[in-house]
Design a protein around this nucleic acid. Structure first.
Lengths: 111, 111
DNA sequence: CCTCGTTGTGTCTTCGTATTCATATCGAAT
DNA sequence: ATTCGATATGAATACGAAGACACAACGAGG
């Protein structure tokens, strides 16, 4: 008896730079939420992550890349500050979405 | 400026059963070595893993699957014991190799 | 019945990752 | 000038995965 259909094929993909991880599914969600919410703290809350973790993630990527992916603002009575993706950050997110989509198609055919 | 080529796409694939991981690249290497060496301890040594780790991996998979994937023997002055894959274990390994190969082909075309 | 190499298992340590907490800083709006 | 919500950051803690160590159990063959 064959078990071709018994097991589910799962996968993870991510982009690397100089051997270091840049962005995977979680990172993509973070960047997406920051773009949508214009705030690191709200992005973190929406994703059920700690602010500390999201902030650290951003810094880690920026250290690896050598360029900022998020531009932040401080202060302001209404809002208190905020954040948005840099063009660089947007490109990174788009590139991830692109390869993710390609791989999904490839997997669908593999089915 | 686009960064299509700046980042390296990396990925991991594995098979799951009821949402739990069964076998990925590492697991496949373990099963392969066990089949080749007819011994868990030699397989572990060849792979640079601890016996404990390899043994635990096997047990975890068997708990998830509800069936043994490795048959073991104890005792004997010459050999002292040994192990080999059950038919079930062989099928699992083959199934992993199959999807791995398919995915590699799909990715090569996607490139 | 003794030996030897392997299986089987508990425990402790290490280590990377993620969470929590606490606190300082900023600055536009009021 | 005061306020308020967000950014920024250190430190302590928690947690799970993996490795290191130690040792008991087994049993075919000599």
């Amino acid at each position: 008896m064959s078990n071709q259909t018994k097991y589910k094929l799962s996968f993870k993909i991510w982009l690397e730079h100089r051997g270091k991880p840049l962005i995977g599914k979680g990172g993509a969600q973070i960047l997406e939420q920051i773009e949508k919410e214009r705030s690191i703290s709200r992005a973190a809350k929406n994703l059920g992550m700690s602010y500390r973790y999201v902030w650290s993630y951003i810094k880690k990527v920026e250290r690896t890349l050598g360029s900022p992916i998020v531009k932040t603002y401080k202060g302001g009575r209404r809002g208190g500050g905020g954040a948005k993706l840099t063009n660089f950050g947007k490109e990174l997110l788009e590139e991830y979405r692109r390869v993710e989509c390609l791989l999904n198609k490839a997997l669908a055919e593999t089915k």
